Simulated assay, not measured.
Amino acid sequence: MSGTLSRNFSPQNLRHVLRHGISTAGFCCVIAVGLAISGRGAWAPQFVYSLSIGLISWLVVDIGRLLLAGRTSRPWPQGWRGVVLVIVGIVVGFLGGNVIGDAWTGKPLLEFLSFSRDKLASTVLITVVAGVVICYFYYSLGKSKYLEGEIALAQRDATDARLKLLETQLEPHMLFNTLANLRVLIATDPPRAVAMLDRLNSYLRVTLSGSRALAHPLAAEFQRLGDYLELMSVRMGPRLAYRLELPDELREVPVPPLLLQPLVENAIRHGLEPKVEGGEIAVGARRDGRRLVLEVRDTGVGIAIDPHDSTPRPDSGFGLSQVRERLATAYGEQDGLQLAAGPAGGTCVTINLPLSA
């Protein structure tokens, strides 16, 4: 119970209550001006009555809704409880406000009871209409913000589910390729097959022991990428060389898991393996203003260029298409991946991601 009350009376909710009180005072000022113009008395007494009624009703309704909210995240009690709360708030505000106003003006206590029927009816009507309008305004405003929060939460959950689906697609893709290569090595080079199996065991242990978070530090991405490249170097031998360049200040930057591995797979399959002597893969990270720039460069056979178009054609295989979809899901529909021919041959894939700070 105490935990629920602490959450309902959180600093954020109390700030909302305070804002409601300030705006309620503004409404009361406008009502007092209207009553004074209509000839119901001087502005100052009307303001005292209006402000007293409004602030008491505000306290009863706003504090009451937080007490009645319970464990739900809705900003207003549902059903009959909300209606009763408004009625109680208006009644208590009307009686208490008149007591304060009578005391301030020196009139008899609850003087409104001696009003004529028409004046009493108009006084009550003004109080009820003003109370209902103000409560409905705050209810609509709170409901709108609540629904916006629910929509944002649903969109985040949908994005989370989509990223999880992409990750489940990427990991089996890598495993199938590795197991196929391992099958060949078992028959042709058993010692290297054993070494490759040890590397695979290490890679799987690191992967499966990690959490299924939607993001992890860039250092973890490079560590898993290092395990993968070591695994590939067992199969390719001296035909594969690699460098991993990660500055210390970027180690804790969060990125989606398995973001770089498909690019490295593509570099090996389409760049280095078709080349007799193999080549080198370099993976680097750097900061460019408020952007994180990730690069995967290889010295392989390069990419095909359309003679009528200077723009390189992106590979349509699994790796690049999945990375593009992963980036779009995590960061929105933006072209954060570029594919280009390397200056000295080979291919360079660049990813640009926003930095939070």
Rank of each mutant, 00 (worst) to 15 (best):
H20L: 09
L327V: 05
G97M: 02
A103E: 11
P45E: 03
P247L: 04
Q12W: 11
P247A: 07
L153I: 10
D62E: 15
L113R: 13
P354R: 03
C348F: 11
G345A: 06
I53L: 12
A213H: 12
V264Y: 04
R235E: 09
N98A: 07
R183G: 03
R326P: 04
T207C: 07
R243P: 04
S6C: 08
G210R: 15
R192C: 04
A32Q: 02
L225H: 02
F137H: 08
R162P: 06
G342P: 03
R183Q: 08
G97P: 01
A25I: 05
V88I: 12
L327H: 02
V133G: 05
P257Y: 06
E249Q: 10
I37C: 07
V86G: 04
G226Q: 07
G106V: 02
D189T: 13
R239A: 08
S2F: 13
N98C: 06
Q338S: 12
G96H: 04
L229Y: 00
V349W: 07
G26H: 06
L51N: 00
L197Y: 10
L153W: 09
S233P: 03
N352Q: 12
F318A: 05
M196Y: 02
P77K: 01
Y49P: 01
V323R: 00
G210C: 08
M196F: 06
I31K: 00
L125T: 13
S316D: 14
C29T: 14
T350R: 09
E148S: 12
Y331D: 06
L272N: 01
P254Y: 04
S2V: 12
E325Y: 02
G319H: 01
V293D: 03
R286L: 13
K143Q: 12
W43H: 05
R269V: 11
G149I: 00
D335I: 09
I305V: 14
V48C: 10
Y242G: 02
T347L: 04
S57N: 10
L110K: 07
G89T: 01
T178H: 04
V255Q: 02
G64Q: 03
V92T: 13
G271K: 00
I186C: 09
N352W: 09
F47L: 15
S23E: 11
H270W: 06
I151M: 09
V194A: 14
D288M: 10
E277R: 12
Q78S: 14
S209G: 11
A36I: 08
D248G: 07
G284Y: 09
Q322L: 11
Y242D: 01
P11R: 03
D298S: 09
A344N: 13
I22L: 15
V253D: 00
T24P: 00
S209K: 10
Q338C: 09
A161G: 11
V60S: 08
N8A: 10
A25F: 09
